[in-house]
Structure formats: C-alpha cells, structure tokens
C-alpha cells in the first residue's frame, strides 16, 4: 500500500477515477463502432456470395487452369499482407497479428525473397523499426474501411503476381469471431486456391452477352478485391471488439483500485482520529494526575 499521507491517497483516488472515466468512455465508443462494423460485414456478404456463385458456375464452362491467377507456381517470392490497427489500447490485438506473421514466415521459410504489405500504423511501426522489407504501407485507412482501398491494395498485388514479381500472397488478419474472441488467420490470397462458398453450383445455360472466358477473366480480380475487403472489415470489427474487452477490463481494474485505495484512506483517517483521541484522553489523564 502506498504512503501514509491521507492527502496523497485522496489525490491518487481522484486520478484513478479520471482514468476510469476515460476507459469507460472508450469502451462505449468501441461498442458502438463495433456494432457498425458488424453491420458492414453483413452488408458486404451478398455481393461476395453472388460473385462467388457466378464464378463457380462460370468455372464449369471455361478452363480455369488457364488463368494466371489460378495457376500455382513454385513459391520463391512471397508477400504477406498484414492487417493491424492504427491505434493501440486494444489488448494483444496487434501483438498477436505480428507474432503470427513472423512465426508463419519462419515456419514456411518464406524469408528469402519476402516482402510485406502493411495495413495499419502499428504493424508499419513494428516492421519498419526492425527493417523488414516493406513494399507498401497503408495507414489511417482502418478507421474508415472503404472498398476503394481494398481495390487499390488488391490491384497492386494482382499486378505483381501477373508480372511474376510475386509467386504467392498471403493475408494475415484478425478474424472477428465474437466480441471477446478474435482469431488470427493466415489465408492464401494468390494464387486463388479454391472457388467455393455456396455449395450448390447451378448448371445453367446462360445467354452470354460476352464469351464466358471474358467475363470470368474480368470477375476473378474482383473476387480478389472482395477477399481483401472482407479481411479489412473483419479486422476492423475484431479491433473494436478487442478494444472494448480491453477497456472493460481496465475499467474494472480501476474500480478495484479505487475501492482498495478508499479503504486504505479510511483506515488512515481512522488511525489518525484514534491517535488524536488517545492524545486527548492521555492529556486529560495527565492533567487529572497533576491536580
């Protein structure tokens, strides 16, 4: 327990109360942002699902192995796209991602010709400081995820991949499981490994306004864009969830601290009163004795 001065303890209680107010406010802000982020994940689903369904049905009429984005090559030049937050105060959110990314690089021995694309200031700071080969970095886009950012990122990745500047691209991000649970996932983005989703593939003879191959080729890059977009939305929701949980814990800790400090303060005050009483009584006794 800290010092014996009542004034000092009272001052500490006040400052912890201030901190508690801030963490509580941050918790509520995170909660409302989380709700919005969750809505956006739901809103983004129909587009991605329809796109996948159409791609699947197209894949049955074209030769998918012909498309460069679908053919696997020996992985020499790999890239990791790491999604972190721009801000801290969200528990182990950023650390988990960075740890998983570096671990994956080591496990898969991607080190040699590895490059990174970083989204979020925390990741940028961490990898830059350690002089990792960062090819692209995007900061301040996670606070307001927009499709055009995903488009920009995906298109630059596709260009590298198409020109054989990269052989494989992986997405590392926090998947939103629930408010208290985030899961770090590493997902292969390029080459496109699988086109699955809706289990039933509709074998339909469409009237094709353009040759199926042409439409297929135009849709594939868009599919990659939606993948990146989804990862960004998931990461955004996970970040708010993590921050909410962290701030909730901080608020609770502050409450406990205030309680124990208040108790300590009351004890001190009590001790002081008792001491003063004893002094008065013994003083009175001494006076009585002198009479």
């Amino acid at each position: 327990m800290p010092g014996g001065n009542i004034l000092d303890v009272r001052r500490r209680v006040r400052s912890v109360k201030n901190i508690q107010q801030i963490t509580r406010a941050m918790k509520f802000v995170a909660a409302s942002k989380l709700r919005r982020a969750q809505d956006r994940i739901f809103a983004a689903r129909p587009y991605a699902q329809r796109m996948l369904a159409v791609l699947n049905s197209l894949a049955t009429r074209v030769d998918p192995s012909q498309h460069p984005l679908l053919t696997e090559r020996e992985t020499r030049k790999a890239m990791l796209v790491v999604l972190t937050a721009d801000k801290g105060l969200c528990g182990a959110f950023n650390n988990n991602i960075i740890k998983r990314a570096t671990q994956y690089i080591e496990e898969e021995r991607l080190n040699e010709a590895l490059t990174l694309t970083l989204v979020g200031r925390k990741g940028v700071d961490w990898f830059r400081r350690r002089r990792w080969p960062v090819r692209h970095q995007y900061v301040n886009i996670m606070s307001r995820v927009e499709y055009r950012y995903a488009q920009e990122i995906a298109q630059s990745l596709i260009n590298y991949y198409a020109s054989s500047d990269l052989d494989a691209v992986y997405l590392v991000y926090n998947e939103f499981k629930s408010v208290i649970q985030q899961r770090v996932v590493v997902e292969p983005l390029l080459p496109i490994r699988r086109l699955e989703g809706e289990s039933h593939v509709v074998f339909l003879d469409y009237i094709y306004e353009q040759p199926p191959q042409v439409i297929f080729d135009r849709l594939l890059p868009r599919h990659v864009e939606t993948q990146v977009f989804r990862a960004m939305l998931e990461s955004e929701a996970a970040e708010h969830g993590a921050r909410m949980t962290a701030m909730d814990a901080a608020t609770r800790n502050a409450k406990e601290m205030i309680e124990s400090l208040t108790l300590h303060m009351n004890r001190l005050r009590q001790a002081k009163i008792t001491k003063e009483l004893i002094e008065i009584v013994s003083g009175a006794d001494a006076l009585k004795g002198a009479e």
Binding site: L204, I207, Y208, E209, P212, I215
Partner: peptide, 14 residues
C-alpha cells in the same frame, strides 16, 4: 441497355 421482363431467359452480362 438490356431490358429484362419477367420470364426472361437466364443471362449473364457485364
């Protein structure tokens, strides 16, 4: 422009 009315045949277009 493509006009689509009820009962249109399956179609896919950009």
């Amino acid at each position: 422009y493509l006009g689509i009315l009820p009962g249109h045949a399956p179609l896919l277009s950009e």
